[in-house]
Structures are given as structure tokens and as C-alpha cells.
Amino acid sequence: MNIIVSSIDFILNWGRSNSLWPFTFATSCCGIEMMQTSASNFDIARFGSEVFRASPRQADLLICAGTITHKMAPALLKLYKQMPEPKYVIAMGACACGGGMFADDSYSVVKGIDKIIPVDIYLPMCPPKPEALLDAIMKLQKNIRKESFLDRDKFVSAHCSRLKEREDILVIDNDIQVTYWGVNGND
């Protein structure tokens, strides 16, 4: 039984890790570095992920490149939910990781996208070099090769244990409420 599971895991993880199709989602200056990564000098196509899909239904990897404001939070959450499993998230840049320079006294910025969606890889710096993004993708590939298809649900539930859904509210966290028109409460 273990042999069957591990061999299925090997094939699935090999396929998934080698064809991470990113989703075109760039909200600010880190997006420029993401574009640079797919350009000639640091060719993201070498890892098989130059297929930037515009539709979330066909993407596997959400590279959240840039600041997420309270206005953008419901859109990010909706797009994440529209992606089919298996889906992975890279938080690119300090703003996406934990608010960056807006972390202390901004009234309009979500302090880290991990308050809204589960994150697989954090990539700080302001902004990271294109090589750093390639490094993050390689680390994500390493993580995918280690995981088992039986444990994927556990990862999501462990990261979204506090998430609930109501009709008017998309996410209720400890200190953040994402509604359809923005974010309620002081986070």
C-alpha cells in the first residue's frame, strides 16, 4: 500500500512541480520584477512556468506581487477561491509578506496576505531580485516534491482553520473581516 501511494505521489509531484503555471496577478512594483523574471535574462521558462494564464481556472501558482489594500482583499480572496486544486501561493515582496513599510501606521493595507489566504513560500525584500523569485519557485518545487496527495487537505485546513464563510462576509479571522466591498475592523 505504501509503495503504491509513494509511487503515485512521485509521479503526481513530478508533474505538478514541473509545470507551475502562474496567474497574472501584479498589484504594484513587485510586478515589474515578475515581468523581468519572465523576460530574456532570467528566463522563467526554463522551469516550465512561462505560461502566464489570465484565467484563475487554469493557473496553479498565485504569485501575489505587491501591496494588498483593503479594497483589493476581496478580489484576491475571490481569485484564490476560483483556482482549482492543487494551488500554491508565493507572497512576493515585504508588503505581501507582512505589510512592509505600511505595517505600523497605515489605515488601508492588509498586514500580510497570510491573514486572508494560506501561503506556501514567503519572499521578503523590497522588491526581491528576479533571481530571488526564481529561488522561491525552486524552493516551492522542492516542497511540492516532499508532500503527499493525502496530506494536501491537511495543509489547507491547518492554514485556514480560522476561516469561516457567511453570506455577506467572505472571511472572518481573529482581527480581520473581508466583505464583498472591502475589509472591516482594524487589523
Binding site: 503526481l12 508533474g15 514541473n18 509545470s19 530574456s40 521558462a45 526554463r46 482549482p84
Partner: peptide, 26 residues
């Protein structure tokens, strides 16, 4: 650019990886 060259020799198995992933996607 160089194109896919990490998966298998000269990236020859790139599309096979894509096919496996698309088959198993939700």
C-alpha cells in the same frame, strides 16, 4: 531565451509534466 530545459534532457519531458498536471487537476 533558452526555453524549457530543466525537465528531462533539453526539457523534453516538459509537456508530459503539463499533461500529468492537467489530468489530475480539479
Amino acid at each position: 531565451r533558452k526555453g524549457p530545459n530543466r525537465v528531462g534532457p533539453w526539457g523534453m519531458f516538459q509537456t508530459i509534466a503539463d499533461a500529468i498536471k492537467l489530468l489530475c487537476k480539479q
